[in-house]
Simulated scan of single mutants.
Amino acid sequence: MLLASAVALLSACGRTPAPLTHDAYIWQRQWTPSLRHAVDASRDVVRDWRVLVAQASRDGRFQMFAPDRATLDASQRPVVLVVRIDGRLANFDPADLRERITRIVATWPQAAGVEIDYDCPTARLPAYTAFLRELKPALGHVPLSITALPTWIGSPNLDGLLAIPDESVVQVHAVQAPQAGLFNPDIAADWVSNYAKHTHKPFRVALPTYGSRVSWNADGTLLAVESEQAALAAGAVSSELYASPDTVLGFVKRLDTNRPDGLTGIVWFRLPTTEDTRAWSLATWRSVVTNHLDRAPLQLHLRDAGNGASDVLLENPASADTAAPARVALPEGCELADGIDGYRLAPNTTTPTLVAAQARPLPAHTTRAIGWARCRPGTLTTLTLQGPPVS
């Protein structure tokens, strides 16, 4: 009997963990036909929807949103209600906010959980912990989740905070510095590994499906971020940051192969729609989630523009979005050139070369003009580009 128990225990320890599940944030305030289509078209790959239902703004106002319940019900996927508290809101009335949240939950009897999204400064973790300690019993049997920042990992108050909710979602995408980009898989892997040491509850990892245009002050500090809406100051020095689908998919595979204890799934920020010009296409996101990312080499075309000049066109023939190439060397025979739409001419090159400055990603099956050139007769007009894109 003892031997049989030992064998059973060893067998259980050797089991392959369940596949990572995939949730998606629905962060849109307005429910448009495009959003309804995205929900309907994605229900087969999503475990839960995490739907923004309310927000405590920086000025203390409490805004409520009206998700389309009929669309959510038709998707037959569980719904987690997300309440965002602006991280710049230094103080709020805990009792009042707790009452508002519980009233919202009462109107969603089928809710699968409540998530609090509060990107507070690390110094406020004790106050946040006290708030969650009071909120948890007020929710009754409704599970509580929170989002968490990697900057909290060094705090001695993190373990106590994470002991309260039933699960947490650690965000590993952020705008840090011009050189750091939007998503760095090596840094993210360290964050996830260290975060796992601080929680004994299930947790998920939030990954990006979007890009941002970011402006910086002269000293390198962050000025503004344009992700969901225009926010940049006129004349500001800006750059395009992009979470490459290839890079993010590689990170998901990395997590699945070397999974920290407690990691159960991915939460995607945010569900793409055709109106969301800074997010991946819906098809690209689905390809990443299902691990079937279609790729084809980018094509460079020279199209006669008259008067001896040619338009320089970049084509993405694949059915998935891709980041813009860092450098585009024009064919031998081109003598003069310049870039447009995020590209500029590199100095001191043997043949004209366009380099990405603020180049936008290329959606699937699109062709975009990135410059012009003057080339000698007989110059190749189509080239296959090699090498990885900007991530």
Rank of each mutant, 00 (worst) to 15 (best):
I164G: 05
L132A: 03
A148Y: 11
P150R: 02
A130N: 02
A138V: 13
D159P: 01
E134L: 10
P165C: 08
I146K: 01
L158I: 15
L161I: 10
A148F: 09
W152L: 14
R133W: 03
P137W: 14
L135R: 02
T151F: 07
V142T: 12
A130L: 12
K136I: 13
L161G: 02
G160L: 03
L158V: 15
S145L: 06
P165E: 04
R133Q: 07
N157Y: 11
H141S: 15
L139T: 08
T151G: 01
R133S: 11
G154W: 09
L135Y: 03
E134I: 07
L162V: 08
F131V: 14
S145K: 00
L158R: 11
P156V: 14
L149Q: 05
I153Q: 00
A130R: 00
L161D: 01
T147I: 15
A148G: 05
L144Y: 08
L132H: 01
P150H: 09
I153R: 03
P137K: 10
H141C: 06
P137Y: 12
P137A: 13
P143C: 11
A148T: 14
P137I: 15
I164R: 04
L135F: 05
L132K: 04
G140R: 00
F131M: 12
N157K: 09
A148C: 12
L144Q: 06
R133M: 04
I153P: 00
A163S: 10
L158T: 15
G160T: 11
G160W: 04
G140I: 05
L135V: 08
S145E: 00
L139W: 10
H141P: 10
P150K: 04
P137Q: 15
P143W: 04
S155V: 11
L162Y: 00
W152C: 07
A138M: 11
A130I: 10
G160R: 02
L161M: 12
A130C: 05
L158G: 11
K136A: 15
H141Y: 10
R133Y: 08
L158D: 10
P150L: 13
N157R: 08
P150T: 10
A163G: 02
V142Y: 00
L135A: 08
I153H: 00
R133G: 03
I153G: 00
A138D: 01
I164E: 05
L139F: 08
I164A: 07
E134Q: 11
L132W: 02
W152G: 08
E134F: 04
G154Y: 07
S155C: 12
L139P: 02
D159L: 02
R133C: 03
L135S: 08
A163D: 10
S155L: 09
E134R: 06
L144N: 05
L139Y: 11
R133K: 07
